[in-house]
Structures are given as C-alpha cells and as structure tokens.
Amino acid sequence: MIKSKTKILQLTVTLTACAFLFVPIILSVLAGVTANYFQGISSGFTLKWVFRVWELYADSIFLSMRLAFSCLIMTLIIGLPAAYGLARNPGWLSRLLEEFISLPLAVPGLALALALLQLYGSMKGFRTSWTFILVGHVLYTMPFMVRSILAVLASIDLKTLEEGAATLGASPWQRFRDIVVPNAMPGILAGALTVVTLSIGEFNLTWMLHTPYLKTLPVGLADSYASMRLEVASAYTLVFFVLIVPLLMAMQWASARAQRISQ
C-alpha cells in the first residue's frame, strides 16, 4: 500500500516536471501553426508561418549547420591531438595547459566575444566572414571536447597499450590510428554531441560577433521575436526543434553505442 503510494507520488512529481518543461514548448509550437494566434486555435491550422520562416531565415539555418559542422571538425582536429598530448605527458605543465584550455568555461561568452572583437575587429574581411563566428564557437566549445576525450584516455593505460602496439611493429601514426582513436571513441562521440549542440544553440557570444548578414539560428530567433509576428517567431521555434532534436537523439544513440562497445 505504502509502496504504491510512493510510486504514485513519484509519478506525479515526474509528470508535473515534464508538464512544466513541455507545456510552454507545446504552446509555442502550437502558436506557430495556428492561422491567427489572437483568435486562438479556432482560427484553424496552417503551415503558412513555417514556410514564411523558411523564406526569411533559411540562410540562418544553413549558416548554423555549417558553423556547427565546421566547429566540430576544428575541435576534433585541435582537440584530439591536444587531449592525447595531455594524456601522454601528465605533469604540472599539462594540468596548467588543461586549465588554460578550460578558461572559456569560466569567462562569460560576452567577454570572450569582446576580446575577439578588440583583437580582430579591425581586420575587415575576417570580421565580416562567418569564420569569425567560427573562431568564437571553437574557443567556446574546445574545453568540452578536450575534457571529454581526456576523461576517457585517463581511464585506460594508454602508454602500455601503445608500447604493446609498438613492439608489434606499429609506427607512431599507426598507434594513434589503431589504438588511441578507437579507445577514445566514447569520449570523442560524447564531445562531438556537446560541441554540435552548444554550437547550434550558442547565443551570447554569437550575438556579439554576428553581422546583419550573418545570423545563426538562435540569433535569428531573437530577431524574429523582436521584429516579426508572434506566429512567425513561434513557427521558428518549431523549426529549431525539428532540426535539433533528431540531431541530439542521433548523437545520444551513437555515444551510448560507443560506450557499450568500449565496455
């Protein structure tokens, strides 16, 4: 009796929490497909607003995708060797470097953006190109990639594994490819998940760095909230979710799978 009561209580709390999170989202999404928000659902459903968002903000969507993907590539190219180097050479210098890489976690995005503007603001070509925002995103997401790979590498005896491969005739590059990368895979996937999600959703820093012709998804969202009909802004939210939720799920699945394999 008591057991079932606590169960019911647990369920209620869980459901309430879910409702608390989902109801605003559902309402907002619904607003995006109603013909006229002020008349309510009775005005009928339409995809008009969604198409309108696509017309107005398709560029933002593509820019965000391109940024997230490039950011992932950059953090992998820099982060994987960096994490590997840190894992193979433990010591005070490595710890200091790790802290240094992690600095963007502690510094507010706005401050980071300001520093970038001060340093590169005068380089016009660079300032107005999408790669300027990319630099900001890479800086901001790098610690997540490095730390997540480092955590996995620190949990295995990497040095001995590599020595084992070396005695079997593997060159340093072959050891990296056959031993380091596969064993770091759960960390790489978890890091990639975080990097892509953060890059797509990042607002503070991007808002500071963006130009009128370079709006990412969240910046576009703010723009639509500020300057468009509420229905368009809501439809925007819908598009945002449609894009990011499958991505999140895919990467979650991938990292869970990698974790299973590594065990």
Partner: peptide, 20 residues
Amino acid sequence: LPVERRNVGMVFQSYALFPN
C-alpha cells in the same frame, strides 16, 4: 633502432591487450 623496427615480441606484466 626504434622499438617498432626491432621485431621483438613482448608480453607485458599487465598484458596490454587492445580492448578495442
């Protein structure tokens, strides 16, 4: 000569088998 070109076989105390 670096280790990978010596053509030695080694059994480590902890075995160092590749978990992947």
